[in-house]
Design a protein around this nucleic acid. Sequence first.
DNA 1: TTGAAAGCGTTACCAG
DNA 2: CTGGTAACGCTTTCAA
Lengths: 337, 337
Amino acid sequence: MRDPERWATMQDVAREAGVSTMTVSRALTAPDKVAAETRERVNGAVARLGYVPDQSAGSLSSRNTRLVTALISTLGGSVFAETAAGLMRTLRDANCQLLLGATDYSQESEEELISAALGRRPVGVVLTSEHHTPDAQRKLRRAHVPVVEIWELPDDPIDMAVGFSNHAAGWRMTQFLHELGYRRIATMGQRGPADARGQRRQQGYADAMRALGLGAPRIVPDDGGCTPIEAGARGLVALRERWPDTDAVFCTSDAGALGAVSEARRRGLATPGDIAIAGFGDFDYAGPAGLDLTTLRVPGFRMGEEAGRLLLARQAGEISGPCMVNVGFEPVRRATA
Amino acid sequence: MRDPERWATMQDVAREAGVSTMTVSRALTAPDKVAAETRERVNGAVARLGYVPDQSAGSLSSRNTRLVTALISTLGGSVFAETAAGLMRTLRDANCQLLLGATDYSQESEEELISAALGRRPVGVVLTSEHHTPDAQRKLRRAHVPVVEIWELPDDPIDMAVGFSNHAAGWRMTQFLHELGYRRIATMGQRGPADARGQRRQQGYADAMRALGLGAPRIVPDDGGCTPIEAGARGLVALRERWPDTDAVFCTSDAGALGAVSEARRRGLATPGDIAIAGFGDFDYAGPAGLDLTTLRVPGFRMGEEAGRLLLARQAGEISGPCMVNVGFEPVRRATA
DNA sequence: TTGAAAGCGTTACCAG
DNA sequence: CTGGTAACGCTTTCAA
């Protein structure tokens, strides 16, 4: 009898089943390449010993880790939760596991995490941040690891991408509000490193305003240094002071819209009526049973699924060149605009 | 020159630096055990070759994977996002990485994921679900892997636990509402597998009602089959029909409270006034700039940090026996009650 | 302070 | 269908 503190090895199973380790290995990874009777013996031994194959050894030998790394900015704010869930879904079906890291919007953190991640020799890397240090890019390219950037379609992608155009999204929402009859439209939302994409959406807004002949863009400045929800609440106040006649505001995130809607209520303003409010993302709390927020829906779960699919396809050699998937977006009209 | 498609190995670095692999290994993991000049040569070679040590090989040899597995029910609903963030924080400082798996509230899934996880020989496992199949428990115990269960203090923990008493939480909120002057208090929230802990909070509520002499508990039944937010919205309607004189309701999650508050607004009910609403969790949208929800705050981030700390401490041999950490909770009075 | 040899537990490859 | 042998890339252990 072996030391029960130690894990059973394939060697142990082989002995117990009276076969070689190769037969055990095959019985587990390619059962049909083994005689039925042998397979049974092996399975019995596996069960009796509580054997669980060591993936470190397997990976080392087969050069396949079945590991995917996802580096996200933050898990908070509901933004990437869906995406991570979609990714896990796809990976699980392929017997892969997910290594997760949070960069907290810091490029330095990202670079460190990338190094750490590459040490695991992952099958692929999923990146949500959009700006990477030159070193980070070099490391990734040098590693010849499939990379998928998500939540944006970069001009100069590292490898593959699954997302949508944030500029087009801002444009679309502005157009949508215009179609609903609003004319004095403003925008607000967090800026800075925490939401460079929000800025791109605001740029889309600004360009749409000009294209639609709606006058100068009304971009509420962001004080910074607070949560997106607070930014939304304060933004509404600032907006009413600066451009009191505004009839609709596009918040670059649902979190910001939540802050704005809440602040409007506190001030007794009707939404719409006194001011219409639209968000971005269609996070769970934005639904009809909750905030009932007019917003631009983005398929978070699908982006995760799709990113996983691309990674696996590339590993299987089914994709070779660069590859971009545009998942689009869709305005959803609800009660606030 | 080597095939540039292949990763540089420690062997390559050793050759390049004119030393043995052992010296490279030491230069990287224990720099002070190597002469300064040698170290420089090694670092130079590492940089030139873009060498990244292979952790599969390292783990296999050193029997330390620096991997921690967390199995959560779902990433959605903001519930575990903070906890996962806290866990990552602690692990990162210890040079560990996080493997994440979602069980989707299925015990079978959990069992599969546990097996998959054990194959990586993680340093520890963090579990958020509270019920495990007997097989799952057996596997974990047999693996002699440190386990931390979080978000509850189980009667019969597998190993360690970091959490709070959900029963006490329900009791506390009921008492808190009583202190605020409410007398006809009800509760509502999702039930079933998706929130067995919510049921425990409701039990705490019911026991507190009796203890405080507030009459029979008013537990709004849950239709099931919908999101927690919808459940909250529908629950409010059901509540007003069944017990119209109710003056306060304790929702077993902030998501439910969001649905209830939203539904109340739609119906023109004042909160409080017509009905006070309290939630549970203090998720981001519950803050003063957002819903401004009266709720019971639970330290999600800290639970993650603490769980990581326990795992690392046990691995370092600093903890031996069972170990429970009660992180408590705290009522937060805001605008809705 | 450095190095040689012997694994760690698995799978690839080739024979039988 | 089964088995032997040689890696995989690193760290442990022991000597020098």
